[in-house]
Computed example of a mutant assay.
Amino acid sequence: MSLNIVLVAGSSQAESQSAKVAAFLAKRLQALQLCTTPGIIDLGLAPLPLWPASDDHGIWADYAALLREADALVVLTPEWHGMACPALKNFFVHAGYRELGHKPALLVGISSGQGGAYPLSELRASSYKNCRICYLPEQLIVRQVETVMNSTQSAGAEDLRIRRRADWSLTVLAEYARALANMNARISIDDPEFANGM
């Protein structure tokens, strides 16, 4: 069963390392036959207006339509001063239950050095509350990102290791997507009292 998987490259910079890794992972999803045509939302190439802007017919409308059709997501965040980047935080105040509710997501940290873990903890702590995205207990951290995932062939042992870990993580994501298929439709949030998380 081919899944519909959307990757969100959370950097606000054009031609970012996050976008590079998202493109690499999209190709791996195809090579592993998990997804025929992965969707990519690149917040550096097509940024969202700062919330609470009305964007019902603009870029958010396009993103929302893509997300509503997704079975699962891959959320990539660079580490900026130990934090998740503002463009991605802004994305999560735009996105709601209809787009992300009860959909599994793999978190991917991007670091030019040895970091990358803090933004993932930040997103796990706060970004799920109202949209109800379901982060996997697994995560992927791409460290020394400028030196890995740059071509079809690995550049060395560390590049090979992170590629193997990426393939395994994407396979785990696919299993969660199959297990949680249509969960959003099976759980009603019609009662306004429970529309937001606690």
Rank of each mutant, 00 (worst) to 15 (best):
Met1Leu: 08
Ser2Ala: 08
Ser2Gly: 00
Leu3Lys: 08
Asn4Pro: 03
Asn4Lys: 13
Ile5Val: 14
Val6Trp: 03
Ala9Tyr: 00
Ala9Cys: 03
Glu15Ala: 15
Ser16Asn: 11
Gln17Met: 04
Ser18Leu: 03
Lys20Phe: 07
Lys20Asn: 09
Val21Asn: 09
Val21Ala: 13
Val21Glu: 05
Ala22Asp: 08
Lys27Ala: 13
Arg28Gln: 15
Leu29Tyr: 00
Leu29Gly: 03
Gln30Ile: 14
Ala31Thr: 04
Ala31Cys: 08
Ala31Ser: 12
Ala31Phe: 06
Gln33Cys: 05
Leu34Gln: 10
Leu34Tyr: 02
Cys35Pro: 07
Thr36Ala: 09
Thr37Ala: 14
Pro38Cys: 03
Gly39Ile: 13
Asp42Thr: 13
Gly44Tyr: 10
Gly44Pro: 11
Leu45Pro: 00
Pro47Cys: 09
Leu50Cys: 11
Leu50Lys: 11
Leu50Met: 12
Pro52Glu: 10
Ser54Pro: 03
Ser54Arg: 08
Asp55Gly: 10
Asp62His: 14
Tyr63Gly: 06
Tyr63Asn: 15
Leu66Met: 14
Leu67Lys: 14
Leu67Arg: 05
Arg68Asp: 06
Arg68His: 12
Glu69Gly: 01
Ala70Leu: 10
Ala72Glu: 04
Ala72Met: 10
Leu73Cys: 15
Leu73Asp: 02
Val74His: 09
Val75Lys: 04
Val75Pro: 02
Thr77Val: 12
Pro78Trp: 07
Pro78Lys: 03
Glu79Asp: 07
Gly82Asn: 15
Ala84Glu: 02
Cys85Val: 15
Ala87Asn: 02
Asn90Phe: 03
Asn90Glu: 08
Phe91Ile: 05
Phe91Cys: 01
Val93Asn: 13
Arg98Gly: 12
Pro104Leu: 09
Ala105Gly: 12
Val108Lys: 08
Gly109Pro: 00
Gly109Phe: 03
Ser111His: 06
Gly115Trp: 11
Gly115Tyr: 06
Gly116Ser: 05
Ala117Lys: 09
Pro119Gly: 08
Ser121Lys: 07
Leu123Phe: 06
Leu123Tyr: 05
Ala125Met: 15
Ala125Thr: 09
Lys129Asp: 03
Lys129Phe: 12
Lys129Cys: 00
Cys131Ser: 13
Arg132Thr: 05
Arg132Glu: 00
Cys134Thr: 03
Tyr135Glu: 08
Glu138Trp: 01
Glu138Cys: 00
Gln139Asn: 13
Glu146Pro: 04
Thr147Trp: 06
Thr147Gly: 01
Val148Asn: 01
Ser151Glu: 04
Thr152Lys: 12
Thr152Pro: 00
Gln153Ser: 07
Gly156Val: 12
Ala157Glu: 13
Ala157Ile: 09
Glu158Arg: 15
Glu158Ala: 15
Asp159Arg: 02
Ile162Pro: 00
Ile162Ser: 00
Asp167Glu: 15
Asp167Gln: 12
Asp167Ser: 13
Trp168Asn: 11
Leu170Cys: 08
Thr171Leu: 14
Thr171Gly: 14
Val172Pro: 06
Val172Lys: 10
Ala174Thr: 02
Glu175Pro: 00
Glu175Met: 05
Arg178Ser: 01
Ala179Asp: 03
Ala179Leu: 10
Leu180His: 02
Ala181Cys: 09
Asn182Trp: 04
Met183Gly: 14
Arg186Lys: 07
Arg186Pro: 00
Ser188Asn: 10
Asp190Thr: 13
Asp191Gln: 11
Pro192Gln: 01
Pro192Asn: 00
Pro192Thr: 10
Glu193Cys: 03
Glu193Met: 14
Phe194Ser: 02
Ala195Val: 08
Ala195Gly: 01
Asn196Tyr: 12
Gly197Glu: 01
Met198Phe: 11
